[in-house]
Design a protein around this nucleic acid. Structure first.
Length: 688
DNA sequence: CGACCTCGAGGTCA
DNA sequence: CTCGAGGTCG
């Protein structure tokens, strides 16, 4: 028998039972997965259940009901969204940006209720997503709408039905059991890694990426074709109610549990009921939880921009009432923004030691993560083109890894009409020489080897702590020395005298003699440091050491042919060529001769005695976060004990030492299963 | 070619 | 302290 479009006239009652059982089973697993975060079956098993239900329903279409799990994606694309008037207005929240504002909120509540410090609060993470209201009638999802202006939003039911975390039918459990009508409010959002995957997929299809998970969510919710929304990985957390035709519980905390009992996902794991204790008021308890959230925010799979603090008692909420746009009984306590919007005043060009021209955006100062930012690197031309950054642009900036400011994106609709694409100039802004970008490289470089900008950087590098370690020779001083032609290469430093220095700013006799002492003292330097100090391109601390270990001293190295250099483990053609070129250049040879003539006596490397076995012998260690001793000292300690210090985590890393405020390296270390040490554990192992 | 590492460049604050 | 570029190794 071939089923007609209406299916067989009679549906066997066994089939009806099977279908209902399957639906219930699927709903149960949806709830286990989304609401309880405790899946019992694999995705494959789930898919099998789902397909079986689909097959049965295809065979007997007349039994399909709108609350069936198969009916999430329904209908055809909409022309536009209908309006939906909220039964009770969806208010926004007033913000508190710092502790005093939060305490003020608490004080206001205390005054209004006339019993200070006894008020219970509920604190919940504030997700960065899109607020949605779900109207359930007799347990079935009837309407889903956006917040809109608070009174009227858009009816996005067909889209929201595709969000698996949102039940189409509520469970009959808990305080709200069988409420004829309940308006549930919550946040639709996207997980960070799913957002990243979505953007990667868009990139492959040549579509522009979404700026952040929030935008991606908002875009997904406002799709006219629900089939598109269905493909977006949306999640949901419920946090409150509007109209409820059922008795209300005493407080917000019970309310959250009531929603959870209905089968709705609620972020209970990161919410707290805050009661005052003997030594702390309830707002202090809330604040403590807020600090906790701030600490773990980057470990959460979704983005939060703060926390919401609500007076727990619903009765008290009623007494407190509302202001025009926001309730008086709740406040959004925001984290320091890690991103900010500002304007690029101009783009400056920096010239580095290697002659690289680096564009830097000079911006209107703005506070990001508690620090005022006014400059951010734009890296290179490719980066500028990719983001299409122009002078005068309004941009979103953030601190990469919470440290180095970077331009995230341009706010295109705020671009001035006269904005022109930016190109790094073809002349060095410092010496006017030609600047070229060699084939296959990203950087444009000034070709003039004695460009003053390059010279300054070279001297600074020479004097740096890890190199010759000349204390007192800072940027300002180098600037003056070079500009007045007192120093034309590193060797000139050793021929300075007090009289010459006396003419400089901030250089009275005391500082002058200190500086001369420092320069004089630097003459006994370990030979690998000396080599590093010369600033040969591609020769950093590590390569310098490797080369010295191989050749023993400078003499042997200066006369080495590129082929000999290549023999060395870790030295490839590029480095070999760069080293050979440097020593072949007569002026460099002359400079080295003058340095040695000035009395520099490069000390040989201490022979690497095997030494006693230590906890760090042959181990690679990495530091993240701040520790109470300096990084340099920590590094020395590890090296003294026969270990190596790395800059980035890889499978070869043996230990990661995590100090205060560890960075992303800690996450990566955990991912790779690297042993993580606390500072005290490290100190103990190192015998510090 | 991918994995891993080093170099070099960037910014602010105490 | 982090990132991208670029270098080296297997």
């Amino acid at each position: 028998m071939i089923p007609t479009s209406d299916g067989p006239a009679v549906v066997p009652s066994q089939v009806i039972r099977d279908i209902e059982e399957l639906r219930e089973e699927i709903r149960r697993h949806d709830q286990l997965y989304y609401t309880l975060d405790r899946p019992e079956i694999s995705d494959t098993e789930y898919d099998r259940l789902f397909r079986r239900l689909e097959e049965l329903e295809a065979q007997y279409p007349q039994v399909i009901s709108p609350d069936s799990p198969t009916q999430r994606v329904g209908g055809k694309p909409l022309e536009k969204f209908e309006e939906h008037k909220h039964a009770m207005p969806m208010m926004s929240l007033s913000n508190a940006f710092d502790e005093p504002e939060l305490y003020e909120f608490d004080a206001r509540i205390g005054r209004a209720l006339g019993r200070s410090n006894q008020i219970e609060y509920v604190i919940e993470p504030k997700l960065d997503g899109v607020a949605i209201e779900l109207v359930y009638e007799n347990g079935l999802l009837a309407i889903a709408s956006t917040r809109g202006d608070g009174y009227t939003g858009e009816d996005v039911t067909s889209n929201i039905r595709t969000v698996k975390a949102i039940p189409l039918r509520l469970r009959a459990a808990g305080i709200f059991t069988n409420a004829p009508v309940i308006d549930v409010r919550g946040e639709v959002f996207m997980l960070r890694d799913e957002f990243a995957r979505l953007n990667a997929a868009r990139d492959e299809e040549g579509l522009p990426p979404f700026a952040n998970p929030r935008n991606a969510t908002a875009g997904s919710v406002r799709q006219l074709d629900p089939r598109t929304t269905a493909k977006r990985p949306l999640k949901f957390f419920a946090y409150g109610v509007g109209r409820v035709e059922a008795p209300l519980p005493e407080g917000q905390w019970d309310l959250l549990h009531g929603l959870h009992d209905l089968g709705l996902p609620v972020n209970l794991a990161n919410s707290r009921l805050c009661r005052h204790t003997q030594d702390r008021t309830s707002i202090e308890v809330a604040l403590e939880h807020f600090r906790q959230l701030e600490k773990i925010r980057h470990d959460l799979p979704y983005e939060i921009d703060g926390a919401v603090v609500k007076v727990n008692s619903l009765e008290a909420q009623t007494i407190l009432g509302v202001k025009t746009r926001s309730p008086r009984w709740a406040v959004a306590f925001k984290f320091e923004p890690v991103q900010a919007i500002t304007r690029i005043l101009r783009i400056e060009i920096g010239v580095g030691r290697t002659g690289a021209l680096t564009p830097v955006a000079v911006m209107e100062p703005v506070s990001v993560g508690g620090v005022t930012i006014s400059r951010a690197t734009l890296h290179n031309q490719d980066e500028i083109d990719r983001k299409d950054v122009r002078e005068g642009d309004t941009v979103v900036i953030q601190r990469a890894g919470d440290v180095i400011p970077e331009v995230v994106s341009v706010v295109k609709d705020r671009r001035p009409d006269n904005g022109k694409p930016y190109t790094i100039p073809d002349e060095c802004p410092v010496c006017g020489s030609h600047a070229v970008r060699p084939e296959g490289q990203v950087a444009k470089r000034c070709v003039n080897v004695s460009c003053p900008a390059r010279l300054k950087e070279t001297i600074r590098h020479f004097a740096a702590r890890d190199a010759m370690d000349i204390e007192g020779l800072g940027v300002k001083l180098v600037e003056q020395l070079v500009d007045r032609n007192l120093v034309k290469d590193a060797a000139d430093l050793y021929y300075l005298d007090e009289q010459t220095l006396a003419g400089l700013e901030r250089m009275a006799s005391k500082s002058a003699s200190n500086l001369l002492d420092a320069i004089y003292g630097s003459r006994s330097v370990r030979v690998d440091r000396f080599l590093f100090a010369l600033g040969i391109p591609l020769v950093g601390e590590h390569v310098a050491r490797v080369l010295i270990e191989e050749f023993g001293d400078l003499d042997a190295l200066t006369s080495a042919a590129p082929e000999e250099l290549r023999e060395v483990r870790g030295i490839g053609p590029e480095v070999a060529q760069s080293v050979a070129n440097f020593f072949r250049e007569p002026r460099n040879g002359e400079m080295i001769r003058r340095l040695l003539a000035a009395g520099i006596k490069p000390a040989p490397l201490e022979p690497v005695s095997p030494g006693p076995e230590t906890p760090f012998s042959g181990k690679t260690v990495l530091f993240t976060g701040s520790i109470s001793i300096s990084r340099a000292d920590a590094k020395k300690a590890v090296e003294r004990l026969g270990g190596k210090v790395a800059g980035s985590v890889s499978r070869n890393t043996d230990y990661v030492v995590a100090g205060e405020d560890p960075g992303s390296k800690l996450d990566k270390a955990k991912d790779l299963g690297v042993v993580v040490l606390s500072e005290s554990e490290f100190r103990e192992m190192a015998g510090l």
